[in-house]
């Protein structure tokens, strides 16, 4: 039983990261219909920025807050320069452009920081809380708490602020929002900055565990996309639940099914994507879409 709980806790820890990146994907999708395949690479880039601030001598918490703020600005810039021109284009165009962004960010990170793995400083203190024979590391508790805080803040933003209301309006219907005076372009821009920051949180908190290199977020992206699809592409709550769920399932499958081991864990999200799409295409909590003839 100890093994089981240990795996579940590890699953929640990594699942929190998936959930954060999935949240970023869902926010952008809900407000613009864009699926940003570069979300993971943007998060990776933010982790490097945090690393850089820390390397310049800032404390780790200050470094990561500055990195998240920087990412907010960069995210808005990326939206204005790269994605705005193709926002209403065909899916193929959007996929290709976000992959271009993916490749570009990946290479720029490699150019600046190299391809060697860098150790990222620990954010939370070493050690663990012991409950019976199960040890829960402070890092696991910390990351989970960060996820809850982010999700809570996001909820409050959507429910209680004017910009949140505008975002929901744009997500619901762009044209109508424009007609009632919502500055759609600005709302989308802020939404992008916000999503990029959420992804940044995911990337930065993943960094001590995964180590820093330009490819660190590649598999996280797949898990996050699977979480977004599974939870429902337009449902933030779904993304959080699905991210945690996938993290746990992946760890249990890797831990208990010998055939899967650590290499084949990646097949787990593949199966989840397929299963979701075949049996419940709108995801757990997504809105059902009915095509018109």
């Amino acid at each position: 039983m100890t093994k089981f709980f240990q795996l579940v806790i590890a699953g929640i820890e990594i699942g929190s990261i998936y959930a954060l990146v999935a949240l970023a994907i869902v926010i952008i999708y809900a407000s613009t219909g864009l699926k940003n395949l570069a979300q993971g690479e943007m998060a990776m880039f933010s982790a490097f920025i945090a690393y850089q601030f820390h390397a310049w001598g800032l404390g780790i918490w200050l470094a990561l807050i500055l990195a998240i703020l920087t990412t907010f600005v960069l995210g808005m810039g990326v939206q204005q320069v790269v994605l705005k021109p193709v926002q209403d284009s065909s899916l193929l165009t959007v996929v290709i452009v976000t992959l271009g962004l993916f490749l570009g960010l990946n290479s720029v990170a490699g150019f600046i920081w190299g391809y060697m793995m860098l150790a990222f400083p620990a954010i939370f203190p070493e050690g663990a809380v012991e409950i019976g024979s199960v040890g829960i590391s402070y890092a696991a508790i910390g990351v989970f708490a960060v996820l809850l805080a982010c999700a809570g803040a996001l909820f409050a933003l959507f429910q209680f602020t004017k910009i949140g209301l505008a975002m929901r309006a744009v997500a619901y219907n762009k044209e109508t929002s424009m007609l009632v005076g919502v500055q759609v372009n600005r709302v989308i821009m802020v939404g992008f900055g916000l999503a990029a920051s959420l992804g940044a949180v995911g990337g930065i908190f993943a960094a001590p565990k995964l180590f820093l290199d330009p490819f660190m977020m590649l598999t996280v992206l797949i898990y996050a996309l699977a979480s977004a699809a599974f939870g429902g592409l337009d449902s933030p709550l779904g993304a959080v639940i699905a991210g945690l769920f996938i993290g746990v399932i992946e760890n249990l499958a890797g831990g208990y099914i010998g055939f899967i081991g650590s290499d084949l864990k990646i097949v787990v999200p593949l199966v989840i994507i397929l299963g979701t799409l075949l049996f419940r295409p709108q995801g757990l909590l997504g809105r059902k879409y009915i095509p018109r003839v």
Partner: peptide, 15 residues
């Protein structure tokens, strides 16, 4: 790293 950057930028610009 230049290849990836060039590819990334060219893809976006052409699209």
């Amino acid at each position: 790293s230049l290849a990836g950057m060039v590819f990334g930028i060219i893809i976006i610009v052409i699209m």
